[in-house]
Amino acid sequence: MGWLWTFTNSSIGKKFVMAVTGLLVILFLLIHLAGNLTLYWGEGAFNGYVSVLDIFKPIIRIIEVILTLIFIFHIYDGIRLWYENKKAKSIRYKINASSENSTFSSRWMIWTGGIIFIFLVMHLSTFWYAFNFSGKTEVDGIEQYYNIVTTWFQSPVYAVSYIIAMIFLGFHLNHAFQSFFQTFGWNHKKYTPFIKKFGTFFAIVMAVGFASIPIYFFISSLGGK
């Protein structure tokens, strides 16, 4: 397996690892968003969805481990690339003209990624912890998942930071989506312009989809529901 090691440590190999793990994360996000959207169907729908997941707990645990590994590889290679790339360009220009030759999303991946990581920690320590380990998911035999979520989103600080994180997720995805096509070598005159546009559309859908939930519940809470 020496060749695989050489490959993953080559410049293109590192990109490849970023792209593969990124793509898997995108798939995960799609499923996650679909689940989250059940919140709009009310308490019963959401609680039902989470209970179904609960039935497959062992499988979910395995998937969580895999997801963790994917995240670790994605983050590790991301930081490694950032560090090595910075070293290759140790002296910067007096005048920075990069805004005239490249997009914000493409240049700020490490920082948008970093913010998403901070959010991830926050997110895990709130929802994921609460759902799995807090022991508060049931009160008097009634599932509390929906209530836990809506309660958190009534906090302006939590809701706003969630929304900001999702904006950064949008930027991150905007570059990421078309980027994995390029890294895999799928660049074609006919399709690439569409892929780029679709990537932006996809990033907006994902960011708006996730962010709409705290917005909805926060505004609802103001209505004194």
Binding site: S11, A88, S106
Partner: peptide
């Protein structure tokens, strides 16, 4: 060619297209 490119210390592409 990629091996020698990496050895020379060039960074990796992050698809900024600059």
């Amino acid at each position: 060619m990629v091996a020698v490119m990496d050895e020379a210390g060039f960074g990796s592409c992050t698809n900024t297209y600059a």
